[in-house]
């Protein structure tokens, strides 16, 4: 039997249960609300071209940059009309999934 120290508390519907937690439970992904102003990449890949610079006004659907991911060229479009606040990436840069590429305002 395990010692007391290995137990933790898990609250289910108002009751605090004394139990062990699993590695998978403790490493579960934390949820973050998506912010549409922060343009991130859904797929890992390499930046090919950037079509905008800081201060540009863009309209919804305008090309922001192109990204090669999973052997395909993906064009990232502006999700809404606004101003480019900052570009965080450069052409040729390899990006992990979820990297902040462009901030809009």
């Amino acid at each position: 039997m395990a010692t007391e120290e290995t137990y933790q508390s898990l609250n289910i519907n108002g009751t605090a249960y004394v139990t062990r937690l699993t590695r998978k439970y403790e490493n579960r992904p934390k949820w973050k609300k998506q912010n549409p102003k922060m343009v991130t990449n859904g797929l890992p890949g390499t930046v090919l071209d950037i079509y905008v610079k800081t201060g540009d006004q863009v309209v919804e659907g305008e090309k922001l940059l192109s990204l090669e991911a999973m052997k395909m060229i993906n064009t990232i479009l502006a999700p809404f009309s606004g101003e480019v606040r900052e570009v965080f990436v450069k052409p040729g840069q390899t990006l992990k999934k979820g990297t902040l590429m462009i901030e809009l305002a």
Partner: peptide, 12 residues
């Protein structure tokens, strides 16, 4: 199994 995660049902 009350020993682990209080024996809850979850996806796995």
């Amino acid at each position: 199994q009350p020993l682990v995660l209080a024996g809850v049902l979850d996806c796995d």
